[in-house]
Design a protein around this nucleic acid. Structure first.
Lengths: 190, 190
DNA sequence: AAATGACCGAATGGACAAAATGGTCATTTG
DNA sequence: CAAATGACCATTTTGTCCATTCGGTCATTT
């Protein structure tokens, strides 16, 4: 068979989005990098937004895979959720594409990018929510609204990892695990 | 004595900032509204930024006062912190000036406004932190880092009140109190 | 049937002039 | 003479062309 043009396009686009951002990447640039005509891209993807969407969708699969690997069924719920969330946010910060898109949405706020990052958040929350539901069923934690809990956990992690550093010394991974255990599991009450 | 020019200026500025935002308000506009010459403003305030700063400073006093009133020394720590935070965020959302500034910093990101809102956040965290320290000393809650705890509580409240509504039905005041009690006080563990 | 690049209307951004703004200061006022 | 003022200045911001670029289409080629 001939070369897989669709894969070439996806790879070229992912590379270019990572390097220059979504808005600064032109379809012609992608076409040239992928060694195809510009029109060819439109036989596989509806438009530029759809192309980004497909890339993020496969990235979501990758992130979930990475989070799963960070977990260990023998460990308690709190440790596993901590590991999963930490790994996910680490991934999000370190991965060139997500880092660039995160930066882009902050500085220009491209709506297509905002849309796709929302989808990524949604996927993360769903992933954590699933873990919470399992823990509730196993009796590891009290029954609670898993949607709200997953939402709050993600927000708390982002706050601790991203926002906290804006005005303070960064918190170590261990410290964050400790805080997570304290606030979400044990509670502050005496 | 003659009319209090400084107060006139502050009131005119506060009104104009509330109505049009910080950037869209001109010093001439403020002067006209306050019935003073433009130069007069500069005999009381170093510059436009300083004027905003002074307005926010007195707003902080007002917010603290309102939060104190919402609390009741006979109630337990968790209920009081919930009442204080809820009142503060309610104030911040309902007060025309803060609402406008919050919107402005999101859409244009004026740095002077960002600065001043940071100061407001700082004041809120300090207020909560103080309450936490008292509760620890009284033995109402376990010892913990009050700075991190206050920070996380504020972030959690903003997440529940502001962010949650972006994709879900708003949570009632009671529901939020219940969640706060569950996550921060009791903890999820069985 | 799949691939392509010339082509199109819309969006973007650079250049530059005009208008507006924050802040100063010599003059006026009470 | 201290407090108040508004004309004035340097700097930004805004408005307006216009040339270029971009996303997307489609007639033509492979």
């Amino acid at each position: 068979m001939t070369i897989d043009r669709k894969r070439q396009i996806i790879e070229a686009a992912a590379q270019s989005f990572s390097q220059f951002g979504y808005k600064a990447t032109t379809m012609e640039q992608i076409a040239k990098l992928a060694n195809v005509g510009k029109g060819t891209i439109y036989t596989f993807f509806k438009n530029k937004e759809d192309l980004l969407d497909e890339i993020i969708s496969s990235l979501i699969v990758e992130i979930k895979e990475s989070a799963k690997q960070a977990m260990d069924p023998h460990l308690p719920f709190s440790e596993n959720v901590h590991r999963a969330l930490y790994r996910i946010l680490e991934f999000r910060q370190q991965h060139q594409l997500t880092a660039k898109l995160l930066q882009e949405v902050r500085s220009i706020g491209t709506s297509a990018v905002q849309e796709v990052l929302k989808k990524l958040d949604r996927a993360i929350i769903d992933f954590i929510r699933e873990k919470i539901d399992i823990a509730i069923r196993k009796g590891e934690i009290r029954p609670c609204d898993s949607e709200i809990t997953a939402f709050l956990m993600l927000k708390a992690y982002i706050a601790l990892i991203v926002d906290w550093e804006k005005d303070h010394e960064p918190l170590s991974k261990e410290k964050i695990a400790e805080l997570f255990e304290l606030y979400f599991l044990k509670g502050l009450s005496n």
